[in-house]
């Protein structure tokens, strides 16, 4: 699979992706003509108001939803095939740790499901715990950890089986800003170290600009892409980069994009 990656170009390739949900109130167009190319090692943020389809698009990439039109390729195969090949780790808004398992046990869960040997499970759990700076917390139960630590554990769980893609759906949405800043820094560091491709859904402009190499601005009714911004910021990003001129310019462009998207929706 790794070899295939090197040959095949984009990690995610969406062309003309449509998704219509059939609801009791008639059909709802959740995604309309979404076209997007994401290369290996990119950090892509999806930003937009609620109902713009950013989470829905992520779920399509994860093959948790099936587009009703267009093509969506992940790692050069269909999204469904990519899911079966365990091509990505998905971090949900809530940590979703099992209360009856320790932190180690929770991280071990996908490894058990995927049939790793016991020795390899131990080795991987130890490694990702260190990666998210939770070494020493392996034997704790989720309720003994703060919300931020729980979310770190859930990131560790998504990293444990070495998928090349990390899908993150507002992972820090429920956390306070101080914790959030720290976790953003950690995610960047993680991304630098692991060279993973990250798709990150957020509704925070600073978060999107701080983290991303590419920002996808979306607007609702129907959910579609209104702007794709390639960030000129360097890969190494200290927190105070947020006071730089480039940062403010990008943030401004994102805000304009969001406003434009809202304007024709009303």
């Amino acid at each position: 699979m790794k070899d295939m990656l090197n040959i095949a170009g984009p990690v995610v390739e969406a062309s003309g992706v449509d998704l219509v949900f059939q609801t009791n109130d008639g059909p709802v167009q959740a995604l309309k003509d979404v076209n997007l190319l994401i290369g290996k090692g990119e950090f892509v943020s999806f930003i937009g108001p609620s109902g713009c389809g950013k989470t829905t698009f992520l779920r399509c990439v994860a093959a948790l939803e099936t587009p009703t039109g267009g093509t969506l390729m992940v790692n050069g195969m269909t999204a469904e095939a990519a899911r079966k090949a365990r091509a990505y780790g998905y971090v949900f808004q809530a940590a979703g740790l099992y209360p009856w398992r320790t932190i180690s046990g929770n991280i071990r869960l996908p490894l058990e499901i995927m049939g790793f040997s016991r020795a390899e499970q131990d080795e991987r759990v130890a490694r990702v715990l260190e990666l998210v700076e939770l070494g020493g917390f392996g034997n704790k139960y989720p309720w003994q950890l703060s919300g931020g630590m729980q979310q770190r554990a859930s990131i560790a769980r998504a990293l444990a089986f070495d998928a090349d893609i990390l899908l993150m759906d507002e992972p820090f949405g429920a956390l306070d800003e101080i914790v959030r800043d720290r976790l953003n820094e950690e995610v960047l560091r993680l991304w630098n170290r692991t060279q993973k491709t990250i798709l990150f859904v957020t509704h925070s402009i600073p978060e999107a600009v701080y983290l991303s190499t590419k920002i996808v601005v979306m607007s609702p009714r129907p959910g579609r892409i209104t702007d794709v911004i390639d960030s000129p910021l360097p890969r190494e990003r200290p927190l105070d980069i947020r006071d730089s001129r480039e940062f403010i310019e990008i943030a401004h462009r994102v805000r304009e994009g969001l406003r434009a998207g809202h304007g024709d929706g009303v």
Binding site: L64, R83, Y88, F92, G96, Y98, W100, L109, I113, F161
Partner: peptide
């Protein structure tokens, strides 16, 4: 969400039962 999560790992129905549903029902 918990069920979706297991789907992202391509867990089988049996694994979903033994690892999630059964312990959650205790």
């Amino acid at each position: 969400m918990q069920i979706d999560q297991l789907r992202t790992w391509y867990a089988s129905e049996a694994q979903m039962f033994w690892k999630l549903r059964l312990p959650a029902s205790m």
